[in-house]
């Protein structure tokens, strides 16, 4: 058994100990995970974005890079009470530009693509079921008109589709968590204890 496997097994058991109740081993592992994840993110952020998008262009003499450099300083102003209002300037840029990018992107990806995928020839039961499902789900989410009469009946059909969707999503989530659990148990009983060959 390697030192890496030993460390991984001890930390896995520490996290699993939460199934009994909250205890110092779990809290230790939890805090270590928070620290390591934050440290890992810092490294990835610096290596993956700040170096190629700020430091390297600066070394190459691209003076446009002064703008993000100032924006970084302004956003770091959030750490003290006195300089906090200045951090709203980079936030305004990211929110404004993000909203501007979002309009055409969402119209394309979320609305037009979904509508064109729904408007298929009604030559199969699946296509008819999907068309009915999309229309009734949208009717359910349309709250400007009271869900009464035939409109209410359409909304009710929409809730049936939604419930099937939520159930299927729940089932998928459970199975993905179970496969993670199986992976951890395989590691503990195989790589750590050697009981599974």
């Amino acid at each position: 058994m390697t030192a890496g496997n030993f460390a991984a097994a001890i930390l896995t058991l520490a996290i699993f100990s939460f199934l009994y109740r909250e205890n110092p081993f779990f809290r230790l592992a939890e805090h270590l995970l928070v620290g390591l994840s934050a440290g890992y993110f810092t490294v990835i952020a610096v290596q993956g974005t700040l170096v190629p998008k700020v430091l390297e262009p600066l070394q190459a003499g691209d003076w446009w890079v002064v703008v993000p450099f100032i924006l970084i300083i302004l956003i770091l102003g959030r750490l003290t009470e006195k300089t906090r209002p200045a951090s709203r300037i980079p936030l305004a840029l990211i929110i404004g530009a993000g909203a501007g990018v979002a309009v055409p992107a969402l119209l394309q990806a979320r609305i037009l693509v979904q509508l064109s995928a729904t408007m298929k020839p009604l030559n199969s039961a699946a296509n008819i079921f999907i068309l009915v499902g999309v229309i009734t789900t949208l009717v359910y989410f349309f709250f400007s008109r009271e869900h009464k009469g035939w409109w209410g009946k359409l909304a009710t059909i929409g809730t049936w589709y939604l419930m099937i969707f939520f159930g299927a999503t729940f089932g998928n989530t459970v199975m993905s968590r179970i496969s993670l659990l199986i992976g951890r148990l395989e590691f503990l009983f195989g790589d750590f204890l050697g009981l599974i060959k």
């Binding site: 990806a109 979320r110 009734t136 998928n172």
Partner: peptide
């Protein structure tokens, strides 16, 4: 997963899309 789930998900995505476009315009 292929039929009723896809239909409901498309309905939700179209709703999210319309809501997000409206919110983005309000922000701008």
């Amino acid at each position: 997963l292929d039929i009723p789930s896809v239909a409901a998900r498309r309905g939700i995505l179209i709703g999210i899309g319309l809501g997000s476009v409206a919110t983005s315009l309000r922000v701008i």
